[in-house]
Amino acid sequence: MKIIALIAVILAGGMLIYAGQDLPAFGDPESPAYQHPIIEHYITHAETESGVGNIVTALLANYRGYDTLGEVTVIFTAGMTVILLLRRREI
């Protein structure tokens, strides 16, 4: 059983390495993810549009604020789920 698992893991890893040859090199400034115009917009306009110097915070709270609201709801729901499953005393 462990042999089958090992073979499956090695096959999947080999496929991922084979597919990874086409990906851009580490730190390549010409990579498609960095050349997309939205990145340039984020870096140059984040401070004038959001007023914060940390671009990650500007993205998190302003451009992707709806996503972050969902994320906070996810962690709140996880906390409530654990309370429902494990809370021992009656409230």
């Binding site: 730190g27 390549d28 400034p29 984040a46 110097g53 940390n54 671009i55 990650v56």
Partner: peptide, 9 residues
């Protein structure tokens, strides 16, 4: 990115 710094202005 090569030579890049953290995305904080």
């Amino acid at each position: 990115v090569k030579g890049g710094t953290a995305p904080i202005l």
